[in-house]
Design a protein around this nucleic acid. Sequence first.
DNA 1: CCTGGCCTTAACAATTTCTGAACATTTGCG
DNA 2: CGCAAATGTTCAGAAATTGTTAAGGCCAGG
Lengths: 232, 232
Amino acid sequence: MVGKRVLVVDDDVKTVELVELYLNRDGYRVLTAYDGAEALRLAREAHPDLIVLDIMLPGLDGLQVCRTLRNESDVPIIMLTARTTEQDRLIGLELGADDYVTKPFSPRELAARVRAVLRRLPEESLHRGPKEVVAGELKLNLETHEASLAKKPLNLTPMEFRLLAIMAREPGVVFSRAQLINRAFGYDFDGFDRTVDVHILNLRRKLETEPGRPRYIKTVYGTGYKFTGGKE
Amino acid sequence: MVGKRVLVVDDDVKTVELVELYLNRDGYRVLTAYDGAEALRLAREAHPDLIVLDIMLPGLDGLQVCRTLRNESDVPIIMLTARTTEQDRLIGLELGADDYVTKPFSPRELAARVRAVLRRLPEESLHRGPKEVVAGELKLNLETHEASLAKKPLNLTPMEFRLLAIMAREPGVVFSRAQLINRAFGYDFDGFDRTVDVHILNLRRKLETEPGRPRYIKTVYGTGYKFTGGKE
DNA sequence: CCTGGCCTTAACAATTTCTGAACATTTGCG
DNA sequence: CGCAAATGTTCAGAAATTGTTAAGGCCAGG
């Protein structure tokens, strides 16, 4: 998968740059902000996968930012603070921070915490919602990652599996290419629309008996694609 | 359904309160104890649905409590351990803990683990009783750590055994490297994804007749690994 | 203090998948 | 019909993922 995005918030430029360096080295994409307002704006706009948040910030401080964000999303937050009193630590955790690192910190350690926090996420989301998508003769088992059409197993690539799952979850609904890209790749992906077409083509080859006259994945001219149960 | 009851045992009041706060927020009813004897008394009296148990306790320590409780009931237990040594990890799980979280932990994470354990309870409870995992021709004895495939004994290392047990417990289910690391290495393990690959490689060498075309441990490209009974 | 097993990690090879461009074909519409 | 826009198709190189080897560290047992 493409690198996850981490928003780093600290009023000290040197600190931000140091953290950025280390996170980049680990393959993350880094967004930066230097005050609380900017942090909130970026968090809302870019939906990062994790936020590293200093407590001491000009204007809105880190705790306020943390509290605000918690009301809006479940994005994991790692707090940074110079102070080390037990109370500060508890306050941060009570506000919903996922982890806590005290300054001065080693960037290596912070990077390790980032990895650790991000690693335990997938387990959560995976077990939410239905474990199987069924639409007509199509079956997609999200747990075993197996796909079948009329009992016959399909051998799908990760991208094909994702795209098909997105569409099959809501049969009949038309998805634009942009929507498909967003859902399959994550928001903010800057890729080429037409790549979707190629995946659709490959999907049709695998599940249509007559790819030229598709029964499952229909094209809606000028709009996008939709999945139908196969019964028109 | 009324909130399930969780017994939280730790000698540190602050920790207990923090955990209580989070579990309450999730709709659980929380009982608390600050030493091993109290924990046992409450567990027997109130029959909680789950127990969060610190290892380090005054008097009776957590391991003793865990062992005692396991002789009396199947109540799920999540262990809290200080910085892990390899030994602590294995000991806790061998004693029958359902999960464990290493300190310092984030209460969000602990709450997540509580949810996870309680959610998979119905299915898991079937697998209790004999401490053995059987999947097709594979047999894993969790007590003696002995493994055999088609009657022939396998000589597995501890890590190989744990990885195989995790996957074989739920045949067909795909586990990401992150999930495997979490469950086998520990939630705070700061390591490299690809370590899993090497263990998988070594496992295949031991149990596949043709490691190049594995029948038991399959790779799911872009996702992770899964165990199959060897049929298909 | 050495030895051997085990775990971790780095490095490199092999494989699979994805992307983006080019070109072909179809569709909608006047 | 004829045109422009949208979609279908092909394909090679790029990128991502996994397989494999090997070296070094750690620790228990001798």
